[in-house]
Amino acid sequence: MNREELAKALKSYRTPFEEEQLFVQQFIELTDDPLAFHRDRKEGHFTASAWIVNKTRTHALLTHHRKLNRWLQLGGHADGNENLLEVAMNEAREESGLISLKLVDRGIFDIDKHIIPANAKDPQHFHYDVRFLIEAAMDEPLTISEESKDLAWVKYETIPDVVKANDSILRMLEKTSKSEVVC
């Protein structure tokens, strides 16, 4: 999925969730910015994430992010790579050690615009996160990366307690709770 394909996918992206509808146009406009996929764009840039679920849709893999000290989906910066699907898959492998990741659908699963607090290297800025739905086996060994404090397969019913008021994760949970399991 290159920049043009991303713009096309965003233009056709439909969601029943009002919070996503509010920033679809901002994502589309960002695809025209030459720095959209680079951290150098200080006001905000694209990132990509993997919402990793087990085949039976009872658990999701979450990481306890070291810097943000929150449980989140796996993902990261594009660092110039305009293929956000590739970024999401690479980040999922790097942050989990999982090898047998299966993309459920090549289409965009979810989008979220969220603020990242200022740190020693960067001012406060936005991440325009494009997410993809991925399946993995729960019995495959996990490897915790330097970016994480922990990794865990979390039961769907306990995710709200673990992520607290993270509406974007709760939205992805709702999307996969309603989706059909394909065997």
Score class of each variant (00 low, 15 high):
K164G: 09
W71L: 06
K149L: 14
D129M: 06
A165C: 10
T158K: 14
D129R: 07
A118E: 15
H125L: 11
R57T: 03
W71A: 03
C183G: 12
A136E: 07
L10C: 07
L30W: 01
G75M: 00
L35N: 10
E18K: 15
I144D: 05
L72D: 07
D110L: 10
M89E: 00
I111P: 00
H127I: 05
P141N: 10
T176G: 01
K175P: 02
L68P: 00
V162N: 02
V24D: 08
E146Y: 10
E140M: 06
M89F: 07
T47R: 04
A118R: 12
R171H: 09
Q21G: 14
F23R: 03
N81F: 04
H59N: 07
T143S: 15
V24E: 10
L62P: 03
H114E: 10
C183S: 14
E4L: 13
Q124E: 15
A136F: 05
K164H: 14
F109C: 03
Y128T: 03
T176F: 02
N119G: 12
E5L: 10
P160V: 11
I134F: 04
R66C: 02
A78C: 13
L74H: 01
A152I: 02
R70C: 09
D110K: 09
Y13E: 03
E146R: 14
K113G: 03
P117D: 12
Q25Y: 09
A118M: 11
D161H: 11
V104Q: 09
H125R: 15
E43M: 09
V163A: 00
L151V: 05
L170N: 09
M172S: 14
Q26G: 07
E43L: 10
L85N: 01
E174H: 15
N90F: 05
L62Q: 03
D40Q: 14
K121N: 12
S100K: 15
L84M: 08
H125W: 07
V163R: 00
D167G: 14
L74Y: 03
R66Y: 11
A60N: 03
L6W: 00
E43N: 12
R14L: 06
H38A: 06
L10P: 01
R3Y: 05
S179W: 05
I115G: 05
R57N: 09
D112S: 13
I111K: 02
N119P: 06
I99C: 08
R41S: 08
S96R: 02
E86L: 12
S12C: 08
I52A: 04
A50G: 07
V162F: 00
A165G: 12
F126T: 04
D129F: 04
A88T: 00
A78F: 01
N90Y: 06
D150Y: 07
A120V: 13
L30V: 08
G75R: 01
N90R: 14
N54S: 09
D112P: 00
N2V: 07
F37V: 04
A7G: 09
E91F: 00
P34Q: 11
R106M: 10
L6R: 04
D129N: 15
L173P: 02
L142T: 04
K155E: 13
W71Y: 10
V87L: 03
T31M: 06
T15Y: 07
P160G: 08
I169T: 05
F37W: 09
P123V: 11
E29P: 02
D112H: 10
F109H: 01
I144C: 13
